[in-house]
Computed example of a mutant assay.
Amino acid sequence: MGDYADLPGVRTWYETEDGPGDPLVLLHGGFCTNETWGAQRADLAAAHRVLLPERRAHGHTPDVAGPLTYQDMADDTVAFLETVVGGPAHLVGWSDGGVVALLVALARPDLVRRAVVVGATFRPAGEAFADPGMLDAMTPGSADMEFFREMYEAVSPDGAGHWPVVAAKVLDMWRTQPALTERELGRIAAPVLVVSGDDDLMTLEHTTALYRALPDARLAVLPGASHLVPLEKPGLLNGLILDHLAERGPVETMMPVRRAGG
């Protein structure tokens, strides 16, 4: 089921899956729509009330004048949590959605119970991407962008002709954002599961730095997977997400090292 929420920043499209348990908000990746969560919705809704907003300039949600920023999308998500969810929720973000989840958890810890970030970055592409040069080949009309362009054109209220504008905005954002420091990440209180494919778009070194900077984090590197972990390993990922969200209290292991004395 889908509907619009009139948020202060943008009229936002969202869908819901009415399951039991705490609310869970799924935050899709850049250039994507809720369609890409198809392999997660049923499994996660078996244990949670799942809400799926489409961010500004993505899917059914219109673009807004000016540049696209992670901070604006995080502010939209805060408004969504306050207005539609009505309180704190778990956040699961993939790629750009993971960045948004981190920013929300940093700014509004009262609204985030637990978080999962999949293929996320905390620094711009040049510092995080395994192949930073890939952005130079990604133009609105390039073959690499055809999948995203077709997804956008199928549902965007701004029309197919607006695609080059949105594509340019996202690529510009990736070149300079996000710009979080390890010190800022260290202020995130929510327990965070950091997930990556072993051949992800983000370097494993960057993913490990993210994991180490978060004070209450777990790390999962999925074998035989790329940046498209939710599509390639849905069963494994869904189980990891549900296990993390079901945790109560601190992690207890038989031989703690990083968590010793925590």
Rank of each mutant, 00 (worst) to 15 (best):
Q40E: 09
G30C: 05
G9H: 13
P53N: 10
A160N: 02
T253C: 06
T83N: 08
T208N: 10
G141Y: 04
L210P: 00
D158I: 05
L242C: 11
S95L: 09
R212P: 00
V195M: 12
E127G: 05
E232P: 14
P8E: 07
P191N: 15
D216H: 15
P88Q: 13
E232A: 07
G197L: 14
P256I: 00
G224I: 06
H90Q: 11
Y70D: 05
D3W: 07
V229F: 13
G21D: 07
R187A: 12
D110E: 14
V195E: 13
Y70S: 02
E35M: 12
S156V: 00
P109V: 00
P234W: 14
A120K: 03
A154P: 00
E146F: 05
A74L: 10
D131V: 04
R248S: 04
G86W: 15
P250L: 12
A189M: 14
L242W: 14
V99W: 11
F122M: 04
D22N: 02
S196E: 14
L214K: 09
L24D: 03
A154E: 03
G86Y: 14
E247K: 04
L236R: 06
G141D: 12
R11S: 06
G261F: 09
D3K: 06
V221L: 02
A5H: 00
E153H: 01
A209I: 07
E127W: 07
M145L: 15
T61S: 08
L102I: 03
A209Y: 05
L210K: 00
D63K: 05
A179Y: 10
T253R: 06
V116Q: 13
G126N: 05
L52F: 09
G133T: 03
G19M: 02
F147R: 15
M254L: 14
G224R: 12
R258K: 08
Y211G: 08
R212D: 08
P215D: 05
D63G: 08
V85M: 04
P215H: 09
T203H: 07
Y4I: 04
M202Y: 04
L7H: 09
N238S: 13
R55Q: 15
A42K: 09
Q177H: 07
Q177L: 07
E146I: 02
T33W: 13
Y211N: 09
D96V: 11
L171F: 12
V165S: 01
E17S: 15
A154Q: 05
A65I: 03
G119E: 11
R258C: 07
